[in-house]
Amino acid sequence: MEGQRTYWTEKGKDKTFTTPFDIHLFSRYVPQDARILDFGCGYGRTLAELSDSGYSDLTGIDFSETLVERGLRERPGLNLTAYSGGPLPYEDNSFDAALMLGVLTCIPKTNEQAEALLELQRTLVPGGTLYVIDFLLNRDRRNLDRYKLGQEKYGIYGLFDVSDGGTLRHHDRNHMEALFSGFETLYFEESVYTTMHGHHSQGMCAVLRMP
C-alpha cells in the first residue's frame, strides 16, 4: 500500500480521471439530503458534480495528500480529507451512501480490497447505497501480455505495472461479485471506459444496497 500511496501522491496530482459518473442513475437511488462518502475521492471531481446537482452533505477521503490539496484548491468548499489508509475515521452508520469510482483498480491485494469494503459496510447505515465503477479483464494482446507479466511478478492475474510507475488491477467479474457478496445488487452493467492513460478497457458499474 505504501508504494501505491507514493505513486498517487507523486503522479496522481497531475492526472485527469476519466471513469464516468452517472448522476441520473445515482439520483434514482440516493436522495439529495443523503449523507454521502466518496471513498478514494481523488481531487473531488465527483463530489463537485454532486454539489452542483444539489447534494450538500458530502465527504471525500483519499490517501493522496496532493490529490486532496488539488481538490481543495479547485473547489475550496468541498469537504476533502487525506488519510493514511486502514480504518476510516468515521463512526458506524455515518453515511447513507458511498462512492467508489476506479478505486479497487488501485488496490492490488484482494485482502485489502475486502478490508476497504468492510469499512464501507461499517460506516453505511442499514439499507445504505454503494455506487461502484471499476475495470474488468480485457482480452486484447496488449493487456494479455501485461497480465502475464504481472502474474509472474505478483502472483495475481490481472495485476500489471504502468509505464509511469504505478501498479493497477483489472478484475474477473466473478471476483467482483464475490467482493460484493455482502450487498444486494440493485443495478449492474458492463461497459467500456477510457482509462486515465487514454486506453479503452472493459469495466462495470454497480449500484448495491446494504442489508
Rank of each mutant, 00 (worst) to 15 (best):
H175T: 07
L144R: 10
D22Q: 02
T59K: 05
L104F: 12
E91W: 00
P31V: 00
T123N: 08
S201D: 05
I107Q: 01
E65H: 01
F21N: 00
T6I: 13
M1C: 11
R146D: 11
H200C: 12
S181T: 05
L67K: 03
G54I: 01
G44M: 13
S181Q: 14
Q121A: 12
Q151D: 09
K11H: 10
S53T: 06
S56E: 09
E177P: 06
L117F: 09
G158C: 11
T46A: 12
G42Y: 05
L72P: 08
E184P: 09
T195W: 08
M196A: 07
L58K: 01
T9L: 15
E152C: 03
G86P: 11
I156K: 04
L101P: 07
L67Q: 07
N111M: 05
Y154R: 09
V103S: 04
Q113S: 11
M196Q: 03
F160Y: 14
G165P: 13
N174G: 13
L78M: 04
R141F: 04
A48W: 07
K11F: 08
G71S: 12
D14C: 06
F95L: 00
Y43W: 10
R45N: 12
L47V: 01
Q4P: 12
D14S: 05
F63E: 05
L136R: 03
S94P: 14
Q32W: 00
K13F: 06
R142K: 11
L72H: 03
Y187M: 15
S163V: 14
Y55S: 12
S27W: 04
R73C: 13
D57K: 08
M210N: 14
V103A: 02
Y83R: 09
G71T: 07
T123I: 14
G127N: 02
I133S: 15
L101K: 02
D52C: 09
M204A: 10
S64T: 01
L117Y: 04
D134W: 03
D145M: 10
G44E: 03
L80N: 06
A178S: 07
A97D: 02
R5N: 08
S201F: 06
H24L: 12
L67M: 11
R169S: 06
T6H: 13
